[in-house]
Structure formats: structure tokens, C-alpha cells
Simulated assay, not measured.
Amino acid sequence: MTSGLLLLIGASIAVLVTGWIWYPRHMARRGARVPALVPPDPPSWPAVSVVLATREPTPRIVQRLQNLRELEYSARALQFVVALDATVAERQEAVQQALGSGVVVVHGGAAGKASALTAGVHAAAHELLLFVDTAQQFAPDALSLLVSAVLREGWGAATATLQPTSGDALMDRYWRRELAVRLGQASRHSVICVTGCAYVMRRQFWRDMPVGLICDDLWSTYSVVTGGARVAIVPGARVVDPRRFSREQELARRLRTMTGLLQFVLWFPGILSAHRNPMLIDFLLHKLVRPLTPLLLLVTGLATFGLLWRESPGLASVLTTAGASAGLASWILAGMGEGRLPRMARTGIFAGQLLFMPLKALAFAAAGRWDVWRPHH
């Protein structure tokens, strides 16, 4: 009994340490050795179809297209396709009139970004596809750097680098760490997920997205790597998101992403096959350890309690009571207004909410509840 509990504790801690400490550091060291890319000369720029999936108001679409037209890329080489969400399909004619005949406007056949993207690709004319969202802004050389990356032999897609400019110190540190990990992944094989608001893909690797799919970014990467190519991340291709999210909104965004990850595993279990997925080890350590973390911590805690109970029931009871009290206090503090708590306390509670948020995603996945997307303005 004791040896079994010790083995359980050791295995759980080993997975956590590998996924949260060793793997990120190892990937960051690999990524630091990635050389910078040089964009091609203007005569070598191939034609690109820009696919913007959106349900934002027309003025925001106009503003986004203006930024894309100002890129250091031949304007004549760009085709613009605006793919409206099916929930705003009635706006198609008005949007078309506002954007003019130089932009193709279509709409998805069903609600959701996946359906809109599929409709947009069907309307695209060129071999290279640039996928963008409405809110972000590209650096002038972002597209040329992405194209130069994807034109290399063996590469099927290349994603830009979204700058950590949220204004939240905790989330910016997390994102900088994430970018370092992605660089290492690409140096080994491929990033696990493209940045959905900014990536270029070769059309030959496109596969129509299933209706209701949440993680379109993971689908695109999976389509490329199962098609025999690699997915790059380009540090110099900078993208900025000027929006600022509250921590409550950030939690909602993370919940959506985590639920989408679990949806993907349930819908496409082949991603867990080493034969089909050359990114399997990276996927397990970088993605699946995250939703499993609360469960691994729970297993570790219960096994530790079992060991303590065998040796000293009194001590086990005291520690359990202390842990339950700390959890109750955190729950009460989390319900208080942010202005009533010290900054360090707010950050600690937010970190705890992020850590245990996967439990809610697991509950959604178990119930098959996939409608978790909510827009933030």
C-alpha cells in the first residue's frame, strides 16, 4: 500500500515537473538558437489571398484592411476576402458596398469561426493564404517575413509573433514564456498551434474545418503536419493586439481555449497517435499536461494524505483542515471586489483561478458543451 502511494506521488510530480519546468526550459534553449529570417526582394513576392473571418462592425473591418494594405508587400499581389460569421450574414450586401468591388465578401454556412474560414478559403484565389482577425495590427514587414518562411522547402505554414502587450504583468510573463517554447518547438519540428490571428499557409494543406470546431489554430497546424510539412514561428513578424482584457475576460478566453483543446482530442483522437502526429511528445507535454494539472495535484494530495493517515491520523486531519480553510478563504477573497484586495493577493488568486480553470473545461468536455465562445470588446 505504502509503496503504491509513493509510486503514485512520484509519477504525478514527475509529470508536473517535466511539463511545467523541464520542457519549457529545454524548448526555450533550443529556440534561442533559431536564426533570423531575411524577407525576399519585392520581385519575388508571390500572390497571397488574405482571409479575414469576422463578425465585427464594418468600420472595424475597414480599419483592419487599411493596415493590411499598408504592409511592405506588393498591393497587386494581395486578394482580400472577408468571411462573415453566419450570425451576421444579413450584413453581407452592406459590407460589400462599404468595401467595394476590390474585396470579396462571403459568409459561413453555420455559426462559428470555423465555418467562416472555410467559406473564405473557398473564395480565395491564390496558393498562399494569410489568415487574420479584425482587432490586431501588423508590423510593416510581417507578411514578407511570413511568406519568406513558408516558401522554404518542407514548410507548410508560418505564424507571426503576437507581442506581449496586455498590460497585465502575469499574463505578459506567461506569453513571453509561451513564445520561447514555441520557438523551440519549431526548431525541433513545428509549433503546436499557429497564432490564429496571423499565419500564412500553403493552400495544399488546407482542410475544411468541421462545423463547431473551437481550436481552428490547432486544426490548421494538425492539417499541415499530418500532410508531411512543418509549421514555423517567425519572431520578426510582429503583431500587436491593442485591446486590453480584464482578468475575468482572460479567464473566459483561457476556458474557451482549454475546452477547445479537449474537444479536439475527443473529436480527433488521432492526434494522440505517434504514427499520425509527429508533434506528439510536444503536444502531450505542452498542451495536455495543462488540463491534467489540477487532477495530478489532487492525486498527489490524496496520496500524500493517505500516507500521512497511515503514520499519524491526527496530523493528517490537521493538514486537511488547514488546506480546506485556505481554499475557502481564497474562494471568499476571489468574490470580493478587486479594489478591496492588495495587488499581490489579487495576482495570487488570479494565478490560482488559472491553475484550476481546467476543471471547468473538463466538465464542459464531459457534457459535450462546446458553445463557450463569447466576444470581448
Rank of each mutant, 00 (worst) to 15 (best):
E90Y: 11
T195S: 06
T304G: 15
R176K: 09
L162H: 15
E250C: 01
A86I: 01
L297G: 02
R173L: 07
A186L: 00
D172C: 09
T118G: 01
L52F: 09
F131M: 10
G102C: 03
V50G: 03
T159R: 07
S44H: 15
R346A: 04
L266K: 15
G327I: 07
E56W: 14
Q185C: 01
A363L: 11
R238N: 03
A110Y: 08
I349E: 02
A83V: 03
P35W: 15
D41K: 15
W206V: 05
P42H: 11
S325T: 13
A366D: 09
T321N: 01
R374Y: 05
S190Q: 10
Q204R: 15
G314P: 00
R374L: 06
P24K: 11
L280P: 13
R29N: 06
F245P: 00
I21D: 08
Q185Y: 08
R25H: 14
R276H: 14
G236S: 04
I349D: 01
T118A: 02
F264N: 08
A329N: 03
A83F: 03
L16N: 04
A11F: 10
T259G: 10
S223T: 02
T161M: 05
L298P: 11
S101E: 14
A351K: 12
Y73H: 07
V81S: 01
L255Q: 12
E93P: 07
E338Q: 11
A237C: 02
G154Q: 06
P278V: 06
V88D: 08
V240Q: 02
L213I: 01
P269A: 09
L145N: 06
